[in-house]
């Protein structure tokens, strides 16, 4: 059996083990060096959040759950840190029951780290089952009525941060962090009709489809997966910190090289065997 035949029949479990070996090094070493480049859509996202005026609040809408925590978690954390640093008050709205618990835990941790207080600097509105279009369209006109209470069932009118939030007029920016295409609902019912900027934080899978909205101005900025989160961390002053996003960016580099090498090897073997079969076929005639 030739080399290429052996390679073509390689046990897939060896490939899995090699993947684990390839991604492990940056995660163990934990480099602090963040990606040197910041894409313009990440810079635009940063600017959109930074410009929220003091009389308005931000909405962080999270659709993600534990399944995409590895991508959406760093994005949520980076945006929350920025808002806490800048003193931008925000509310977190979750459309996934597991994600609601995770975002509350993360928000509490960051708030404690930065000396911020629940109810004054941030509020978690808990899980809402949807339908998203009905809740979002209702929120735009009467925030207090549709949302009504936070995750602890405390009325919004009794919480200092949300007491005066009535409708879209008190919202400065919407940050949508999602593994699915829910940003179009916000655009159609909330941000586009009332001219509120939307910052889109998708998983990498959804990012390629968002560029038309960035071009038309319907999205103010975008964080592309964990790479976008790493770039955003650079902008908020964490460029030299050994964060998970920075380590993940380097692990991704290694993983991408590995995938490209596999595609190359697989096709090399395939083409070599195909040409041998053709030569063998012609010789046999």
């Amino acid at each position: 059996m030739g080399v290429f035949e052996k390679l073509q029949n390689l046990d897939r479990r060896i490939l899995y083990v090699l993947l684990a070996v390839v991604v492990s090094a940056p995660l163990l070493i934990r480099p602090s060096r963040h990606p040197g480049i910041v894409l313009s859509e990440v810079q635009s996202a940063y600017n959109a959040v930074d410009r929220v005026s003091s009389d308005k609040i931000a909405i962080i809408s999270t659709v993600w759950g534990a399944g995409t925590e590895a991508e959406n978690g760093p994005q949520t954390e980076a945006v929350m840190r920025h808002m806490f640093q800048k003193g931008i008050k925000f509310v977190v709205l979750s459309w996934d029951p597991v994600g609601a618990e995770i975002t509350y835990r993360d928000g509490s941790r960051i708030a404690k780290e930065l000396g911020k207080h629940y109810g004054v600097d941030w509020v978690h509105l808990g899980y809402r089952p949807g339908p998203i279009y009905a809740v979002v369209s209702g929120m735009a006109e009467d925030f207090q009525r549709v949302i009504d209470h936070d995750r602890f069932n405390k009325k919004l009118k009794d919480i200092p941060l949300t007491r005066d939030v009535r409708s879209h007029r008190q919202i400065g920016v919407v940050v949508e962090i999602t593994p699915s295409g829910t940003a179009t609902t916000w655009i159609a019912y909330f941000t586009q009709p009332y001219g509120i900027p939307l910052v889109y934080c998708p998983t990498a899978v959804m990012a390629a489809e968002a560029y038309p909205y960035l071009d038309s101005g319907q999205m103010a900025g975008m964080l592309n997966g964990v790479i976008g989160a790493a770039q955003y961390e650079t902008l908020i002053g964490l460029g030299n910190s050994p964060t998970y996003a920075a380590a993940a960016a380097w692990s991704l580099s290694a993983a991408h090289i590995y995938i490209i090498a596999l595609i190359f090897l697989g096709n090399l073997g395939f083409l070599t065997m195909r040409s041998r079969n053709r030569v063998g076929g012609r010789a046999g005639r």
């Binding site: 897939r12 993947l19 399944g67 925590e69 597991v98 993983a255 596999l262």
Partner: peptide, 24 residues
């Protein structure tokens, strides 16, 4: 959360397998 995130992460391995065997 551990089970959910691990289930989703299995796709990475299937991509590796597909990259080597299926992407012709």
């Amino acid at each position: 959360t551990s089970l959910e995130s691990t289930m989703f992460s299995l796709i990475a391995f299937y991509i590796v397998s597909a990259a080597y065997r299926a992407f012709r």
